[in-house]
């Protein structure tokens, strides 16, 4: 299944990209996918990275076709 992955702030800097489309196994777990991306791109301070799936913050879930998965570093608004 295809998912759309977005990276922001220092995560985008570490990944060297802001977006990519990836092919994952059906029913892949978000937690495992997050760990894999953190390792692959050596994302700094991984404990501070939150994930939004389809614009909602979640810790873990079973991913589905077409999900938009966003890697969000600490918020710094205001």
């Amino acid at each position: 299944m295809k998912v759309n992955v977005k990276y922001f702030g220092q995560v985008a800097e570490a990944a060297g990209k802001t977006e990519e489309k990836l092919e994952l196994e059906k029913g892949a777990s978000l937690k495992e996918f997050k760990l894999k991306q953190i390792k692959q791109y050596q994302i700094p301070d991984p404990d501070s990275v939150q994930i939004a799936v389809n614009q909602d913050l979640v810790d873990d879930k079973e991913l589905t076709e077409g999900d938009e998965i966003a890697f969000l570093p600490p918020f710094a608004g205001g």
Partner: peptide, 27 residues
Amino acid sequence: LVEEIKAKVPVFGKEILEDETHQWKVN
């Protein structure tokens, strides 16, 4: 509202320093 915005809105800030290097801001 200000506290909620700072805690919940996915906005990211790159602090640009005088020598053109940067670091990422954390609330």
